[in-house]
Design a protein around this nucleic acid. Sequence first.
DNA 1: ACGGAAATATGTACTGAGTACCAAAATCAT
DNA 2: ATGATTTTGGTACTCAGTACATATTTCCGT
Lengths: 212, 212
Amino acid sequence: MSEPSDRRSRKRAATSKAISDAATRLFMERGFDQVTVDEIAEAADVGRMTVFNHFPRKEDMFFDRDEEGREMLREAVRQRAAGVAPLEALHLLAHRLVAERSPVVEFSARSERLVPTVAGSETLKARARAIRDELADLVAAALVESVGRDTADPDAHLAANLLLATWTVAFFEAHRTFRQTHNREKANDAFLALVDKGATGLEAAMAGTPYL
Amino acid sequence: MSEPSDRRSRKRAATSKAISDAATRLFMERGFDQVTVDEIAEAADVGRMTVFNHFPRKEDMFFDRDEEGREMLREAVRQRAAGVAPLEALHLLAHRLVAERSPVVEFSARSERLVPTVAGSETLKARARAIRDELADLVAAALVESVGRDTADPDAHLAANLLLATWTVAFFEAHRTFRQTHNREKANDAFLALVDKGATGLEAAMAGTPYL
DNA sequence: ACGGAAATATGTACTGAGTACCAAAATCAT
DNA sequence: ATGATTTTGGTACTCAGTACATATTTCCGT
């Protein structure tokens, strides 16, 4: 009656969340491939077509927060302090995310259940890889933009892909460490140790291309 | 009548090739998603079930030579000359493949048609990424084996993934160069320049871990 | 050359994701 | 309130991939 602005958006968001929550819960319980879209619709109490209306692909119900990751990467490069090179800004971002216990690098009981769910499904792994590549493309684009190079600049693409490869390996190593020790600090240390090692390599690889 | 050994294998291989050739041709002509398995079966003059008998997934008809790549990587690490570190052996392999005009790093009219075919289909891109990750795992396994580290050694996984990331970027940059110049030498140079740059970074990243 | 044994080819029938199209219900803007 | 717009969700379809069964071909020992 009174809520001035859009009830529509709120309702839509609520429906999205209901579907995504139901789907994620079912995926974790029984595995991605053992859950049908019909069951998700049933569990979220909506029609099957409504599910596809909100999530064009089944796997999008699981990976529904990748846009936040994109935004963080863009921000890190754009809003960096004066005198900080873009790649350095991204390296600082990795450290900050760990320090701030951001969900994207959270090693916890929850991630301990999420990771095997992905590992257990070719479809989810494929989507994870696709997102990784999309993020690398985005980083490459942010790099060339911030330094005024050509869009196809090979150094920017190399740097972006080395960075994402490093972070991915670091993530899995940290996850492995957490699974073995259940010690969040040790997992964070393992993550940052590899991130730093990758950054060292990246710096050496980019030695000939200043300002990156 | 006399061919002593298996006519069976030859016939099976011939059928496989017929299917794969028909499929690849159709994929290049009309795009992966615009070709149905029924059409492929028709074009190869076999039954639909025979297609799935030879290729469990549609995309396997396109990527049917990845095993050769695996073998090359394993060989390069195992059969390296005395005193050559595993990562150095892989770096030498990249140079040798270019020098020997190996099909895997061939920049030609054919690759010029193959690459857009992959780029035009999410399914083919997904399989390409999966193969890349499988190769990285294989390299990591070869590295730990050749140096006697633990299977999960993070440095080996980092090195393997940085290597594959570098080669992938180098491949696409070389392809881009060829498309623009139609000069095979320039494409090769672009490829090797990035491979070398990545190797420089890799060396720096692995500075603390000798013998890799 | 003959009679199984093993591998290969292929048919039928099904599941489940995703699409095209459409109609009804809810929300919004004036 | 009403007409436009958005959201819901139904029906019917396509197509990849699976399960299971059958037929056909090749092979191997006699």
